Amino acid sequence: MGEKKRKEQAQNQSFIFERENYKFMLIGAAFIALGFILMAGGGSDDPNVFNPDIYSWRRIRLAPALILIGFGFEVYAILLNPNKEK
């Protein structure tokens, strides 16, 4: 009888989120990864030489904005309830 109960529980298990939630999570993760990739670099090989590229618009404005947008997608994906009737 114990084995039958375990089989029924295994069949009744489901994912916490639906397919739409995971789609938005992947979109958010892509935005976050792109933001960190754009933020990378800009250093100097010689510590005595200043490289002004570290303060470029891409690293100071664009990359953090993409990361925040990605986090917004992640929060939306977690809170999204696709089973809710419209």
Results as ranks from 00 to 15, higher is better:
Met1Glu: 14
Met1Tyr: 14
Glu3Trp: 09
Lys4Gly: 14
Arg6Leu: 11
Gln9Cys: 12
Gln9Ile: 15
Ala10His: 08
Gln11Asn: 14
Phe17Glu: 11
Glu18Leu: 14
Glu20Gln: 10
Glu20Cys: 08
Lys23Ser: 13
Met25Gln: 11
Met25Tyr: 09
Ala30Gly: 09
Phe31Gly: 01
Phe31Glu: 01
Phe31Arg: 00
Ile32Glu: 01
Ala33Leu: 12
Ala33Glu: 09
Leu34Asn: 05
Phe36Met: 09
Phe36His: 06
Phe36Cys: 08
Met39Tyr: 09
Met39Trp: 08
Ala40Asp: 09
Ala40Trp: 04
Ala40Asn: 10
Gly41Pro: 01
Gly42Lys: 01
Gly42Asn: 03
Ser44Gly: 12
Ser44Glu: 08
Pro47Ser: 07
Asn48Pro: 09
Asn48Arg: 10
Val49Lys: 04
Asn51Asp: 09
Asp53Pro: 06
Tyr55Asp: 11
Trp57Asn: 15
Arg58Thr: 11
Ile60Arg: 10
Ile60Thr: 15
Ile60Asp: 10
Leu62Pro: 02
Leu62Ser: 04
Pro64Val: 01
Pro64Met: 04
Leu66Phe: 02
Ile67Gly: 03
Leu68Trp: 13
Ile69Lys: 04
Ile69Cys: 09
Phe71Tyr: 11
Phe73Ser: 00
Val75Trp: 03
Tyr76Thr: 06
Ala77Met: 02
Ile78Gly: 09
Ile78Glu: 09
Leu79Asp: 04
Leu80Cys: 06
Leu80Asp: 04
Asn81Glu: 10
Asn81Gly: 08
Pro82Asp: 02
Asn83Lys: 13
Asn83Asp: 14
Glu85Lys: 12
Lys86Arg: 13
